[in-house]
Nucleic acid binder design. Structure first.
Length: 196
DNA sequence: AATCTGGTCAACCGCACCTAG
DNA sequence: GCTAGGTGCGGTTGACCAGAT
């Protein structure tokens, strides 16, 4: 398929971060006309964005029911369980976490969990090398982070998941202060509606 | 105080799939 | 059955920020 078809118009297409004005236009338009048919929506709303860009912005950020930040330990656990089951099927996983987007889960996985898994694998590799040298027959305890993560990364479905809730500490420092809050945007949108 | 480094996340890209004509 | 246009998904990138040096 010709990839240019999505952006077939010769009009300039804006890229990069969305401005507050663009957000307001999109929110207003969807409030009045509903979502869907994103390419024509972008044109009709007067946004110099691709339909894909509008869709992404709406789904990942502007939707009123989207929850942002503070992924709870329960959610972390669920993400890990579902990832063990389905792999990188982020949208499928996101469907089981109301208000969470596939993008958010994907980012969360890559930045938080994958890092821990890599560390765990390194620790495990080092410890097994160490064990090979020692040839010691002493049994190992399995309460470390490394063991927990290794168990997970090996797609083991036994109930070691019980460790996960305590293994992954909720960091609680998600920097989600955006330039303007969603409450601000929605209250502005309501104001606009009142003026129409 | 200045610079470096690593973490985070919004947004883009490319591809596959779906559907209407 | 073929094609064009639209949509959804997963991977990747780049800007920004905070903490370390």
């Amino acid at each position: 398929m010709d990839k240019r078809t999505c952006d077939s118009q010769d009009v300039e297409v804006r890229k990069g971060p969305w401005t507050m004005e663009e957000d307001l236009i999109l929110i207003n338009y969807i409030a009045n006309h509903g979502e869907g048919v994103w390419n024509s929506l972008a044109r009709s709303a007067g946004l110099k964005r691709t339909g894909k860009s509008c869709r992404l912005r709406w789904l990942n950020y502007l939707r009123p029911d989207v929850r942002r930040g503070n992924i709870t330990p329960e959610e972390q656990l669920l993400i890990m369980e579902l990832h063990a089951k389905w792999g990188n099927r982020w949208s499928k996983i996101a469907k089981h976490l109301p208000g969470r987007t596939d993008n958010e889960i994907k980012n969360f996985w890559r930045t938080r969990i994958q890092k821990h898994i890599k560390q765990a694998e390194n620790i495990n590799r080092l410890s097994s090398e160490h064990n090979n040298i020692q040839q010691a027959s002493t049994s190992q305890t399995s309460t470390s982070l490394a063991d927990s993560m290794e168990t997970y990364s090996g797609n083991n479905n036994n109930n070691n998941n019980n460790n996960m809730g305590t293994t992954f500490h909720h960091q609680g420092n998600f920097p989600n202060e955006n330039i303007w809050s969603m409450e601000d945007l929605w209250s502005m949108q309501l104001l606009n509606d009142a003026n129409n």
